[in-house]
């Protein structure tokens, strides 16, 4: 179980002589990911979802707020003390081509972390070899074929499975999958997603799925929770099915409306929301961050800042002054 409260992060870019530019990546995010849960972070690139995922995996620091893992707050701990906690949260990289060292065979890649595990647990070295084969079989690969090979000899889908197997060497409680299938061939993507789903069911590993594609989140996160993130803030949060079928925040509705409609199989939802374009976004930080692009914004949206809540009696949490359900999702043609 991992929870975060009011987590913020600001990137300071090296600017010109006159000073640095500050880019807020996260503006106070709360989250809870329970044991064996499935949580998805949805948003566009630059919204902070990847940063948040990296913070959760312990690969990035945060400026303020608190992260609590299994009851232990992280902010008081030294880097060394945090490591055992974060080791149980493993990140699956977006790019299976750079996530594996091209100069090492799969056997060598898996051997190093397994040897570490064996030493920690006082197991003999040979345990590592057995475990490597177990893990590869678990992710649906043939160990005899894969072990002696170099990454370039495997397809994208196989590489991503190896990356998952490597993460599993740490017996993680949670996998953070950041756009884990976006670089894999379309026909193979679902195989990797199904594997993550399967691991969740079989091993009780919780999965944090980070993506810009809500349809993918629908596949992996059924029964789970979905967070819609816009410019470093959670704007809508709730059960995946609720958010997809009954979204109330105009930003969520815009994202859902933008998902391509497969004509012939589907027809577009009748109330598709098209946001105005943000060509110079981010000047004014007062009020609702989405107000400038929102087709339904009012003067209140420009002046006051909405907070996440159940206003209007919705099932999900949202940060909008004018929540309204709209039918934006494509409908299946009979």
């Amino acid at each position: 179980m991992i929870t975060g409260t009011a987590v913020t992060k600001t990137f300071r870019q090296r600017g010109n002589v006159l000073g640095r530019r500050e880019v807020p990546a996260l503006r106070g995010v709360d989250f809870t990911i329970g044991k064996g849960g499935a949580v998805s972070f949805i948003g566009e690139s630059g919204c902070g979802k990847t940063t948040l995922g990296r913070i959760i995996a312990g690969l990035e620091t945060y400026d303020s707020g608190e992260i609590v893992i299994d009851g232990t707050p992280m902010s008081g701990l030294s880097h060394r003390r945090r490591q055992p906690y974060f080791r149980r949260i493993q990140l699956i990289h977006q790019d299976p081509y750079s996530a594996l060292n091209p100069t090492r065979t799969i056997h060598q890649t898996l051997e190093a972390p397994l040897r570490l595990r064996a030493r920690q647990a006082g197991r003999p070295r040979s345990w590592g070899d057995v475990r490597a084969e177990e893990l590869l079989a678990l992710v649906g690969l043939d160990p005899g074929y894969v072990l002696p090979r170099y990454p370039h000899q495997l397809s994208g889908g196989m590489r991503q499975r190896v990356v998952i197997a490597r993460a599993l060497t740490m017996d993680p409680e949670m996998l953070v999958a950041d756009e884990a299938v976006s670089m894999i061939d379309v026909s193979l993507r679902l195989g990797v997603l199904a594997l993550l789903k399967d691991l969740r069911e079989r091993l009780g590993v919780s999965v944090l799925f980070i993506t810009h594609d809500i349809a993918t989140a629908r596949y992996i996160g059924d029964g789970g929770e979905l967070y819609v993130i816009y410019r470093g803030q959670v704007v809508e949060r709730g059960a995946t099915e609720t958010i997809i079928n009954e979204p109330v925040h105009p930003y969520t509705q815009s994202l859902l409306s933008a998902t391509p409609v497969l004509h012939g199989l589907e027809r577009p939802g009748p109330e598709r929301v098209v946001p105005t374009e943000a060509l110079d976004e981010g000047k004014a930080d007062a009020g609702c961050l989405f107000a400038r692009r929102c087709p339904f914004s009012t003067s209140r949206c420009e002046a006051e800042t909405p907070v996440l809540g159940h206003d209007g009696g919705t099932g999900q949490l949202h940060a909008c002054f004018h929540p309204r359900r709209r039918s934006v999702v494509p409908l299946e043609t009979a």
């Binding site: 379309v186 026909s187 193979l188 349809a215 629908r218 596949y219 494509p330």
Partner: peptide, 21 residues
């Protein structure tokens, strides 16, 4: 088409194609 996760329809029907390109 079956391998594309969609927003409409029964998501549990979605399947990956076996094998590799």
């Amino acid at each position: 088409i079956r391998a594309i996760p969609r927003l409409s329809g029964d998501i549990s029907q979605a399947r990956a194609l076996p094998g590799r390109p």
